[in-house]
Amino acid sequence: MDQYYSNKRIVLLFLLPALVIYVGLAVYPIVQSIVFSFYEWNGLQGVPMEYVGMNNFGSMFRSAKFWLSVKNVLQFIAVNLIFQIIIGYGLAVLLAQNRPGFKIFKTIFFFPVVLPLTATALLWKFIYFPNNIGVLNQLLNAIGLESLKTGWLINTKTALNAVSIANVWTGFGYHMVIGFAALSAIPDGIMESSMIDGATGFRQFFSITLPMIWESMKISFVLLITGSMKNFDIIFVMTEGGPNGATHVPSTLMYYEAFKYDHYGLGSAISVFIFVASLALAGLTIRLMRRESVEY
């Protein structure tokens, strides 16, 4: 059997297809992306590439548009983190009480996760339409809150939060299911004995339940932060970064700089920034959330 498991030829042969595709189309381009960020060229093809050192990063860091996009993505991350965790895990706690019908609710709450973001983004665009056309504005009319009506995606003050809320709608079901799985894995005995000890409600949640599901919550935090950092689809479809850059995030800015204005060097610099920032944020989150794991 030792021979079977150490056959070099087979090792190579079986690893090769996956490695060739993965290295050629995912890893090598990252290296290229870093190289490209030191060059400037104004067209995808047939244009001479000029080495410009750190200039692309220089113009990126001097650009007000870039800093606005960083501020926007931080706000987008914060809104998604707070609402998706609270709604997702809150509903998970309610579902985990296993009352009759909870399966139907779980199905309905989760299904936006599987929908194409393009479709949900377009639907939310219709909901946010301005004046008396938009569904949300009509709803506000109906319940007597006309004063709140606005062009949700045209108004620079509301656009980013409106997009963020749409993204919360599409995503929290995922974290609800992660939380539900973690809650279901807690042995019944622990809950019962804590009740006998007199722990109820909030006390029980914070001193028993929360430590038990902490590892899952950590995964949710990392996925939410890195996922929001990379988010492109929903903003591209709903606002294209507008109005006036109010919803641009680094990934949409990268797309426009490179593929609309032919600033491929600057675009590459922004994409390197996205890569480094999402790795750094993931690392930071894991570090901040590190704690003694609970054995049971």
Binding site: V27, T226, M229, K230, M254, S271, I274
Partner: peptide
């Protein structure tokens, strides 16, 4: 590779595929 944002590699890929 699960950590690679596809935005990061889109420019080189467009360059070479083009």
């Amino acid at each position: 590779g699960m950590m690679i944002p596809i935005q990061t590699i889109i420019i080189p890929l467009a360059f070479y595929l083009g």
